[in-house]
């Protein structure tokens, strides 16, 4: 039963907190092997024994539907045991600190912690107090590496390579942890990135010499191979950063007439949940160019691949 090592570079970090924890070679390794995991999802019995005996803790300090379900199902498909922790029903309500909470969990011998938290950096704190691995499932506006991996996988599966792809990102860049991870991953893989968003939604630290920015949607989508919409985070918009949703949609929404300027087999992506009629029009989200549902399937396959790469023996 010989075989090559699954990790191109053996110095894989223990935790996956941002995409900087992965080299380009390691990202490619996760993507390539993601294909094998995707095949499993089409079988009559969608279960493999690979993580039997391993325990995965899902620590969600913030509401989530698709990410949590995706991680949970990925763990179950690989025969791991899972324990769920949600902030609202836990001893955090009794003022237990995060440190004490995770140390308690660690005494229960958990192998991988999947962490989502509204404050950036919490996965690092947790990583300092446990023996297992931490996989970041989104911390504040900081990072969401597994979403970026599934986005990269979706592009890689369609186009065969990410190098040289024209990727246009529209929507709320400021409050998006997805975009920060996506940009980091896309730059690593050699894509050309264009952002199109009003100035009030463009944080200074996103402006990188290698990222183009425009206020003109027509220019932004020109020759795009991929257009990615980002959710307008209405719950974080109290301060009136955009004057009006209708006006925003008029100038910065992704509309079907814009697609004629893009590459003829352009791929429309969105991490979900989508706001129809704000950052993306319904007819675009439902068009033949849209791969929004395919992204969900790919999320499951790539998270299985990530578990495989990060579980420690």
């Amino acid at each position: 039963m010989g075989g090559m090592d699954c990790r191109e570079n053996k110095e894989m970090r223990k935790h996956l907190i941002t995409l900087d924890d992965l080299s380009k070679e390691q990202i490619i390794s996760i993507l390539e092997q993601g294909k094998a995991f995707k095949e499993i999802l089409s079988r009559p019995i969608k279960k493999i024994p690979t993580l039997r005996g391993k325990t995965i803790g899902l620590l969600f300090f913030e509401p989530s539907t698709r990410t949590k379900l995706s991680f949970e199902l990925a763990a179950k498909r690989m025969s791991a045991d899972i324990v769920n922790f949600s902030a609202s029903t836990s001893s955090l309500k009794k003022n237990e600190s995060i440190k004490d909470t995770v140390m308690t969990l660690d005494a229960m011998k958990i192998d991988i912690y999947v962490v989502r938290h509204p404050s950036p950096g919490v996965p690092y704190i947790i990583a300092d107090h446990i023996k297992g691995s931490v996989i970041n499932a989104g911390d504040g506006a900081h990072s969401h590496p597994t979403q970026a991996i599934l986005d990269l996988y979706t592009m890689w599966e369609r186009f065969g390579s990410i190098k040289g792809l024209n990727v246009t990102i529209v929507g709320d860049v400021k409050y998006s942890r997805v975009v920060r991870s996506d940009i980091s991953g896309l730059l690593k893989m050699g894509a050309n990135i264009t952002l199109c968003t009003p100035k009030t939604l463009l944080p200074r630290y996103v402006i990188d010499a290698r990222v183009r920015h425009t206020f003109d949607m027509k220019k932004a989508v020109k020759d795009a191979d991929v257009i990615m919409g980002l959710r307008m985070q209405k719950e974080r918009q109290d301060s009136g950063i955009i004057p009006d949703e209708v006006e925003y949609n008029h100038f910065f929404g992704l509309k079907s007439h814009l697609l004629e300027h893009a590459s003829k087999d352009v791929m429309i992506m969105h991490p979900g949940p989508i706001n129809r009629g704000i950052e993306i029009d319904g007819e675009v989200a439902d068009s033949k160019y849209s791969v929004i549902n395919e992204q969900v399937t790919n999320g499951l396959a790539t998270r299985m691949s990530i578990f495989y790469h990060f579980v420690e023996n």
């Binding site: 039963m1 075989g3 090559m4 090592d5 699954c6 990790r7 053996k10 390794s29 092997q33 294909k35 094998a36 995991f37 095949e39 690979t50 005996g53 691949s305 495989y308 790469h309 023996n313």
Partner: peptide, 12 residues
């Protein structure tokens, strides 16, 4: 798998 230091590469 749980006894190997390096995980083998998975193919389809």
């Amino acid at each position: 798998l749980s006894t190997l230091a390096d995980k083998p590469k998975v193919n389809s």
